[in-house]
């Protein structure tokens, strides 16, 4: 929902970032206000996933220029865990498997770290079990997955559900979902998208990073951005995604050529 007077949650200005000295982001500008859902689309290598990792603070990505303000705070002054506690959430494209660490324990520690910042009471083991069981409904997840090690042996769909379960527990302010639709069949996609829709409110915002229009059939974005060569090349509404579905990304090359980039 677009409300021009809503709180400005994320303000990305001329952001440049590199991996191992290779520049990937070359001047990204984006503003995200409360209540908005943004879709960031683009081909492989356009910088979409890099943008998500830079926002979450992955140590392999180096910011080389520009700024990101999260609720008026300099995001890059915060450690990754501090960003998470303040409400920045990254849903991973490839959630990591952690053998030996119980999913339930992991979720509890993470939830309590966020709750402490929110000024909420810490949940003990028993209280947390009740709490998490309520949230399982959001992604129709089998409670048996709580007893297993974090993501270990989970199918692609189960891993993504586990990501959205974490989103439900952490109640983030800005959620960045990196290709949450990849590797999902249509039923799993509907469940995951349904979870995201349930969690979207007028007080938070979602950044969907995706290749395909099909996720946007399930989650209606307020803005669609097309990334190419490390920048946002074009911004539009929902219709831009539909247009991409029809025409593909060929026009991107032409536009980049016209700008002398490619």
């Amino acid at each position: 929902m677009i409300r021009p007077d809503a709180e400005l949650l994320l303000e990305i200005t001329d952001l440049h970032a590199a991996v191992e000295d290779k520049p990937i982001l070359k001047g990204v500008n984006l503003q995200v206000r409360a209540g908005e859902i943004h879709a960031v689309m683009g081909r492989n290598g356009s910088g979409k996933s890099t943008l998500s990792k830079v926002l979450a603070g992955h140590p392999a990505y180096r910011v080389t220029g520009g700024s990101v303000r999260y609720r008026s705070q300099d995001l890059f002054e915060l450690e990754p865990e501090e960003r998470a506690r303040l409400g920045v959430f990254l849903g991973f494209q490839y959630p990591v498997e952690i053998p030996g660490v119980s999913n339930l324990e992991f979720l509890r520690v993470a939830t309590n770290a966020r709750r402490e910042k929110q000024g909420s009471e810490e949940l003990d083991t028993f209280a947390f079990e009740d709490h998490v069981r309520e949230k399982l409904a959001v992604v129709q997840m089998d409670p048996a997955f709580l007893e297993r090690s974090v993501n270990e042996g989970f199918s692609g769909g189960e891993k993504k559900r586990n990501e959205i379960l974490q989103m439900a527990l952490l109640e983030p302010v800005v959620s960045i979902l990196d290709e949450t639709d990849s590797g999902l069949d249509i039923d799993a996609l509907r469940i995951v998208a349904g979870g995201v829709n349930q969690l979207a409110t007028t007080d938070n915002a979602t950044l969907l990073i995706t290749h395909y229009q099909r996720l946007l059939d399930e989650i209606t974005p307020d803005y669609v951005h097309v990334m190419a060569a490390g920048r946002i090349l074009r911004t539009g509404g929902r219709e831009l995604a539909l247009e991409l579905e029809q025409t593909g990304y060929d026009w991107v090359d032409k536009e980049l050529a016209a700008q002398g980039v490619a």
Binding site: A56, G57, H58, P59, A60, E79, P80, E81, R83, A84, R85, F89, L90, F92, P95, V96, I98, F106, V109, A110, A113, R114, K117, Q166, L170
Partner: peptide
Amino acid sequence: EDELFYLQSRGIGA
């Protein structure tokens, strides 16, 4: 590093 970052990105200190 990826395991550490995954946990950190959920608010768990390094």
